[in-house]
């Protein structure tokens, strides 16, 4: 079944197609949920609600070539996750942990040598507000202006939270390297 056929059958409320869609894209959508939500239990709830929404609104999806279904599904799921965070987390009340921010940022070494699951864990461990901004900036390619509008925070808050999130990530990556690749 092609992407297009799959979407069409889902629009017709075909149960087999729905199951296929769930199995084909579910695990990468779960990764998105976890990346935004941070804990597996809540991520599961968001994934559940997101899939309900996907099947309810799949009629609105228009096929625009290979990959467009996955892109659409991801967008729905990100929105679901943001909705969840908006309800459960006070974005503006995220405290800024100044002590944790080192002065120097070192982005030279990149992330290529860090396993996916470790990076995922590191993102999940970010403080909630930082994590949301970080996700939107890095993975959704949103500008700080757009993020500010989406989350009801100021542009400055968005950029400073991103800066701190990135700094924390880099520090976590350094620590990981120190621990696992001691020869470096």
């Amino acid at each position: 079944m092609t992407e297009e056929e799959l979407a069409l059958k889902c629009k017709q409320a075909d149960n087999l197609a729905r199951k296929e869609l769930y199995e084909r894209y579910g695990s990468s959508l779960m990764a998105i949920c976890l990346r935004y939500i941070g804990d597996r239990e809540s991520a599961r709830d968001v994934l559940h609600d997101g899939f309900i929404r996907i099947f309810q609104s799949i009629g609105l999806f228009t096929y625009k070539g290979t990959g467009s279904l996955k892109a659409w599904l991801s967008k729905v799921m990100v929105n679901e996750a943001l909705g969840y965070l908006r309800k459960h987390v006070q974005m503006s009340q995220q405290e800024v942990l100044v002590d944790e921010v080192p002065d120097v940022q070192d982005t030279d070494e990149g992330v290529a040598d860090i396993p996916h699951s470790v990076l995922m864990r590191m993102i999940a461990e970010l403080p909630e507000g930082y994590r949301t901004v970080f996700n939107l900036y890095v993975f959704e390619g949103k500008s700080h202006k757009e993020i500010a509008d989406m989350l009801g925070i100021t542009e400055h808050t968005s950029s400073s939270q991103f800066y701190r999130a990135k700094t924390l990530m880099i520090r976590k990556i350094k620590e990981y390297r120190k621990e696992h690749y001691s020869w470096k």
Binding site: N15, R18, K19, Y22, E23, G26, S27, S28, M30, A31, C33, L34, R35, R40, A43, R44, L47, H48, F51, I52, F55, T107, G110, V111, A112, I114, H116, L119, M120, Y137, V138, F139, G141, K166
Partner: peptide, 26 residues
């Protein structure tokens, strides 16, 4: 560059699906 690399690295990452979720959804 760092952001781009992180994005690409995580692009196709997936997590195991939660147990029993499909049954619930169905």
């Amino acid at each position: 560059k760092w952001i781009e690399e992180l994005r690409r690295r995580m692009e196709n990452y997936s997590e195991p699906l939660p147990d029993g979720l499909w049954e619930e959804l169905a």
